[in-house]
Design a protein around this nucleic acid. Sequence first.
DNA 1: ACCCGCGTACGACATTGTCAAACTCAGTTT
DNA 2: AAACTGAGTTTGACAATGTCGTACGCGGGT
Lengths: 254, 254
Amino acid sequence: MPGNIQSIERAAAILRLLSGRNRRLGVVDISGELGLPKGTVHGLLRTLQHVGFVEQDPETGKYRLGAALLHMGSSYLDGNELRTRALNWSDSLAARTQEAVRIGTLHDGQVLIVHHVFRPDDSYQTLDVGSLLPAHATALGKVLLAHHPYVAAELARKGMVSYTDQTICDLERLERELEHVRERGWAAEYGELSPSQVSLAAPIMDRRGLTVGAMAIFGPPERLLAARAPRGELLTHVREAAQSVSRELGAIPW
Amino acid sequence: MPGNIQSIERAAAILRLLSGRNRRLGVVDISGELGLPKGTVHGLLRTLQHVGFVEQDPETGKYRLGAALLHMGSSYLDGNELRTRALNWSDSLAARTQEAVRIGTLHDGQVLIVHHVFRPDDSYQTLDVGSLLPAHATALGKVLLAHHPYVAAELARKGMVSYTDQTICDLERLERELEHVRERGWAAEYGELSPSQVSLAAPIMDRRGLTVGAMAIFGPPERLLAARAPRGELLTHVREAAQSVSRELGAIPW
DNA sequence: ACCCGCGTACGACATTGTCAAACTCAGTTT
DNA sequence: AAACTGAGTTTGACAATGTCGTACGCGGGT
C-alpha cells in the first residue's frame, strides 16, 4: 500500500466527523478530535468549503456539511446497480406484503440503506435512504454479516451496542444466529433495534455469487409474525423478491 | 485567496466528473478530462477509494462514486435547517393542493432539490432529492434567481439550454420575467422544462431577509392552471406555505 | 503473436501542504 | 474601561509531501 494522499485522508476524516455528530463543529472542535493543529484544519476546511463540501455558518463561524455532498449522494444512487435493478422488485414486494421495504448494503461494518419503499398506506414515514443502521441489530445486517465473516469478526472486536432488551450483544449468540441465516437463507430480527419493529430479510447476490446486498420488509410484529415466527407467505415474498433481483444482477439461479 | 489545497481541489474535480453523466470513468478518461498525468490521477483515486468516496469496478477497473457519499448526503439533509423547518409545511401543502411539492436552493447556478413530497395519490413517482434542475427553466429557479442577481448574470454568461419550445433562453426575456417575480413575489413555469409539467413557486427567506430557498408545487397544466394562468387558490397555498417556513426561519413577517 | 490501451508501481525533484506562532475580533470578566 | 479569554483566521519558513515522467504487467482485440 504505497502512500495515500494525506490531505485527502484528513479532509475525509473531517467530513466523517461532520456527518457523524449531526451538528456543526468549529475549527478547534475538529482540531481537537483529530489531533491536528488549528491552522491545518482551517486550511482543509477552507478548501472543502471552496469545493462545496462544507459550508460555514456566517453567524457562528462553525462548519457543517455542504450541498455538493447531497448531489453526489444522489448521483451515487443513480449509478448503483443494486438499487437500480431492485427498484421494480421492491415496489412489488411492498405491494404484495403491504409492508415497508428496505434494501441495504454493507458499508464500514454497518448497513447502508440504498433504497426504501414506504408501507402502502397513508401513514407518515420518513425516508431513510442514506442512513446507516447497526448490522447486528437488523435483519438486513444479519444477512450481510452471514456472508461476510471478516466484517462480522471486526464487528465483534469493536463490540456490539444494545438498543433494546432483545438486541444480540453476545458474540457467540450472534455467531449461532449467523450460522442459522446461512443455512436457511434468510434472517429475522425481533425488536432488536426498536421494540415495536421486526424485520425479515433475504440476500441479494451478484453474478459471482457474492452477497452484495439484502432486501427486507419491516413493520410491527403483529403483522409480520404468527406464533412468534415469521409468517410463511411474507417470508416467501421477501425471498422471491431478493432472488429476482439477484437474477437481474446475473446470479446463477441454481 | 490564500492557498487552497491542490490535491483536495483535484479530488473534488474528480468526484464532480464522476457525478456528472459519465457514471463510470477510467483513469485515462479522467486524466484526459482534467489535463493531469495518469499517475497523479491514479494516486488521487486510490486515496478516494480508501476513504470510500469512490469504488472501483473489479471487472473493468473503472471508477464510480462510493457509498460514503450517500451517507454524507443524507447527513447533510439532517443538518439542513431549510429542509428541517419545511418538513411539516410541505406535507400540508401537498395535502391541501393535492400536488407534488419540491423545495430547492441555489447551488452552483442550479436548483438543488432538498425536499420532495409526492403527490398524494398512488401513482409511481421518483424521488428527486439531490437532483440539480436548471434554474432558468423552473419556477423554483426563477424565484431564486430573482433574488440573486449575480447568479442570474453568471447564468446568462454561460448560456441557457433549451428543454422545450417554451424554455426561456433569451436573456432579456428572462430578466423581464425575474422582474415580474420580484414584484409579485412568486414565479410560474409553463412547460419550460418538461412539456406536460408546470410549476408554481414562492420564496423562503431567513432572518436576514435573504432568499435562501423556494417552495413549489408542480403537476400537469390542466390541474394547476385555469385559463392559462395559475389557479388563484393554489398560488395562495404555495405562498402561505413558503411564508410559514420563512417565519420558522426567523424572517420578519413584515 | 503481436500490439495497443488500460490500470498500476516507482523514484527524483521541488512544489506543496504543514505547523506553530501571531493576529483579529467578540463576548466576558475584572 | 481595560484586560482576558477563546473563537476563527493569517502568515511564512521548512521539509515532508504529492507530483509527474517513465516503466511494468496484463488483458482484449486483431
